[in-house]
Design a protein around this nucleic acid. Structure first.
Length: 433
RNA sequence: GGAGAGGUGGCCGAGUGGUUGAAGGCGACGGUCUUGAAAACCGUAGGCACGCAAGUGCUCGUGAGUUCGAAUCUCACCCUCUCCGCCA
């Protein structure tokens, strides 16, 4: 991703402040500006040389077409001068390429400035903007809610040991009603988004090539978080965002096509290198999980309100399941390098007594689009400009399942199936014998 | 995986070394005509970079190379199509 050179020139102050707010180095902005000035100067010099050579070549062409002798002293002289300029062009180009490479590298290290209404600060500065539903109590009269892995155990719907055997730790296996629950949730969410929210369903590949991984910024920023198929130079997708957003890479979209709103299911693969810790129990942090992702391409003027809309679409999934949740507006240092504004949705899990992040909804403004060169044309004759991209989970399954199990468990070890899922799963899941 | 064909502007499609950034058609946009629309006719028009501008450069799948000069020649890679093999 990168902030645009144009914005850098016109609004350097805010980009600098944006870097500062995100805890990044604001000096990079000035370095980039200086390098950009050199680049432009160098470009002018190179272009002049090329123009000169072009003129000479044209003169040679004219001579020869007139029937001139290729060996005549005039032609030979012209050739000599042209060759000489050619050598100067080569060295000028080498300098340009070097400057360009350094500038590109710098640009990648300047973060997307946060929107003005985003609180400045770290985790402590993030604010809960609303909560929905009543967080279920851990202990009620006569019984205490168990963590989801224990609920799953008594229901016989996870086979974590089986997953560890066939793939490795962190690759869960769902069996019986557990498998059916996965399938039901995926279908429920996609149905909500397509039928009620008018999104177009995409069923993407589970691997992407290096260009796509670069497009959404997995390379080079998060390369060690991805599983790589080195033999074929492919990457297992960490989220459907990667293949779906890249669908329009290097395209100019007609204004009449916007907004484009996709919903896509995909398995998600993450190495989670170095993430072992307290919140990794059960299926809270795994190497493979399932997620329904929403991806939008918007007119810049509308992306602000689309972020709110997308967040509400994700919320509707939680509401449908009857899960209590809260919406957190992430502060500048809590939201990441590339987002302009981001909400996290956290569902209450009474067994582990914690809020679980089940969705993350972000507005990238034009930051991602610039990297992928996705533009739009407001009218058929106007100049193309960058689109705004947004995405949000709606929802990530593993943690949603954990919340469902902990909220809907009964003292007798059975599970009350949430009402929306009853047509697919029946009323109750009973403990395995 | 093997053999063959091919990748040119929004689309189709000419173009095999020298004003070709690229004929022609369709589509698009502006206009004439019309009550309105269609048709017809006239006109405009790719993208990117640098520049106040005039303009200059780059761009014919991608990257290297040959040449004074490459859409046109050479090499590698990618993709598409057809046939064969294999296969859920």
């Amino acid at each position: 991703m990168s902030v645009g050179l144009q914005r850098l020139r016109e609004d350097a102050h805010r980009v600098r402040q944006g870097a500062l707010d995100k805890g990044e180095d604001p000096a990079l902005v000035d370095e980039a500006l200086a390098l950009d000035a050199r680049r432009r100067q160098q470009l002018g010099a190179t272009d002049a040389l090329r123009a000169e050579r072009k003129g000479l070549s044209e003169r040679i062409g004219k001579q020869l077409r007139k029937g001139g002798d290729p060996g005549s002293s005039e032609v030979v002289a012209l050739r000599g001068r042209s060759s000489e300029i050619g050598r100067r062009i080569e060295s000028a180009e080498a300098i340009s390429a070097d400057i360009q490479a350094r500038l590109d590298d710098l640009l990648l290290r300047i973060p997307n400035p946060a929107d003005p209404e985003v609180p400045v600060g770290g985790e402590e500065a993030s604010v809960i903007v609303r909560t929905w539903g009543e967080p279920a109590a851990h202990a009620e009269s006569g019984w205490t809610r168990r963590p989801h892995w224990e609920v799953a155990d008594s229901l016989g719907i996870f086979d974590l040991a089986g997953g560890a055997k066939v793939a490795g730790s962190g690759f869960p296996v769902y069996r019986g009603a557990g498998a059916a629950l996965q399938r039901a949730l995926i279908d429920l969410f996609i149905g909500i988004h397509t039928r009620e929210h008018g999104m177009t369903e995409i069923w993407p590949p589970a691997v992407v090539n290096a260009e796509s991984a670069r497009g959404t910024g997995q390379i080079p920023d998060k390369e060690d978080q991805m599983y790589v198929v080195t033999r074929d130079d492919l990457y297992l997708v960490p989220t459907a965002e990667v293949p779906v957003t890249n669908l329009h890479r290097d395209e100019i979209l007609e204004g009449s096509r916007l907004p484009i709103r996709y919903v896509a299911y995909s398995p998600c693969f993450r190495r989670e290198a170095g993430a072992a810790g307290s919140k990794t129990r059960g299926i809270l942090r795994v190497h493979q999980f399932d997620k329904v992702e929403m991806v939008c391409f918007e007119r810049p003027a509308e992306s602000g309100q689309t972020l709110e809309w997308l967040t509400e679409r994700a919320e509707s999934c939680l509401q449908r399941l009857g899960l209590a949740y809260r919406v957190k507006l992430m502060a500048t240092r809590d939201m990441g390098f590339v987002q302009a504004k981001k909400y996290d949705l956290e569902a209450w899990a009474p067994g582990v007594e914690d809020w679980l992040e089940v969705s993350s909804v972000s507005n990238f403004r034009d930051y991602q689009a610039r990297r992928m060169d996705i533009r739009w044309r407001p009218t058929p004759t106007s100049k193309a400009e960058m689109v705004h991209t947004l995405n949000g989970s709606g929802l990530a399954l593993a943690r949603t399942v954990a919340a469902v199990l902990e909220v809907y468990q009964r003292p007798d070890g059975s599970l009350e199936v949430p009402e929306v899922l009853r047509p697919r799963l029946g009323d109750t899941l009973r403990p395995a014998l």
